[in-house]
Amino acid sequence: MASTACFVIVSKNDIPIYEAEVGSAPKREDQAYQHQFILHAALDVVQDLAWATNTMFLKSVDRFDDLVVSVYVTAGHTRFMLLHDSRSEDGIKSFFQEVHELYIKIFLNPLYLPGSRITSSHFDTKVRALARKYL
């Protein structure tokens, strides 16, 4: 498992709707803010890249020191952004694909408003389990 990993889902209106620090390293508050900052900065790159390719998985779009930002863009332009220091691209791809399936389930819930925060604890547990498995 990666020592540092931060996973954020950004809605198409550029609002973060889900955040999770999934690395094994002990959590530090200032780092969490730094991760948010890096991911936020990467959004611009994603915006350009998303329309230049027809794949959903954009691989690594940005880097900061030894941290890499990998992004997956769904058809509805929701962005899954992962900040990580591991190198296994296959694992990250599988992670994104499985999170995408979970995300679709959340989306199909009639009581969930698209673009609102994902508060489901079930989703949170599953995402963390996937992170342990693939990252």
Partner: peptide, 10 residues
């Protein structure tokens, strides 16, 4: 009830 999960508000 497929897909449904009750949010805290309901």
């Amino acid at each position: 009830v497929d897909f449904v999960e009750l949010p805290d508000t309901c």
